[in-house]
Design a protein around this nucleic acid. Structure first.
Length: 114
DNA sequence: GTGCTGACACAGG
DNA sequence: ACCTGTGCCAGCA
């Protein structure tokens, strides 16, 4: 069964909004919670509709971000107290996934048709 | 149908 | 830490 475009977008955005302050989720992790598509689909949704949600809490699996978003997200992380990896190089930014990785409770999953 | 592209993921070197 | 190649899913020319 295929998921409607709108419904898929809604699911992704809802998961992103469920990420608590100071925590982050990887694109792939979100795709799994949603239960459809893949990391790239999540990425596309974020690029088009991510303006209304805390997009800086969505990062790559290794805890890094695209150059364009890295700069803007840095201040958010400092303000939220997101666990960052010690930056060896100036300008570098990376999340400590070991501590910051988050996954919403099963009840918040897209398993229910509602 | 074929090939390229993308806010990705993972294994190698 | 860096770069490269391959796999992945969906959209579009």
């Amino acid at each position: 069964m295929a998921v409607d475009h709108e419904e898929y977008v809604e699911s992704v955005l809802r998961v992103v909004e469920s990420i608590p302050v100071g925590r982050v989720m990887a694109y792939g992790a979100i795709a799994e919670v949603v239960g459809a598509g893949g990391p790239r689909q999540v990425g596309k949704v974020m690029s088009e509709y991510g303006g209304g949600v805390p997009w800086w809490r969505v990062v790559r699996a290794d805890g890094s971000l695209p150059d364009s978003h890295r700069h803007r997200a840095r201040e958010r992380y400092l303000a939220e107290g997101t666990p960052l990896v010690r930056e060896r190089i100036v300008g570098d930014l990376r999340i400590d996934m070991r501590r910051a990785a988050w996954e919403p409770p099963a009840s918040a999953s897209a398993t229910d048709g509602s």
